[in-house]
Amino acid sequence: MNGLKADTGKHTLLFIDDDPVFLEAQKAFFSARGYTVLTAGGTDAALELLREETPDLILVDLMMEHTDSGFRLARRIRREERFRGTPLVMLSGVASETGIGFAREREALREWSHLDDFLDKPVSAHRLLAVVRERLGGPDEPAGGR
């Protein structure tokens, strides 16, 4: 593994998404940078996994079993004392899919769901990396990536 890629510290990330390809790709990308990557394909799998694990950052997709599964899951995670301070990032294609003013409601939703960030899908791995580093600290990616 390329040592230059590895970030300082061994942070654990949890990706929750119903697309297995997306999960695998993120796992490959972030593992290459020294992160420990956990993945869950849905709400139940995520809750099951969180019984044992305490990731440092959680990225959750909005639309899974239902159109708002991500919100419900985020609320449930937040209710647990253990995850009060864990950064929670929501990925959704809602704003660009519906064209409605989801962005305007962002602050209200963030407040309601205690989410730390919203990212519109499709999202690049480098954009995700920037968000992860912003939340967890770590060296900036060199300009232009690798």
Binding site: A25, F29, P122, V123, A125
Partner: peptide
Amino acid sequence: RAPLGALKSIVEV
């Protein structure tokens, strides 16, 4: 969009 997103993440990796 979903498969495009998956394809894009494969290309990125």
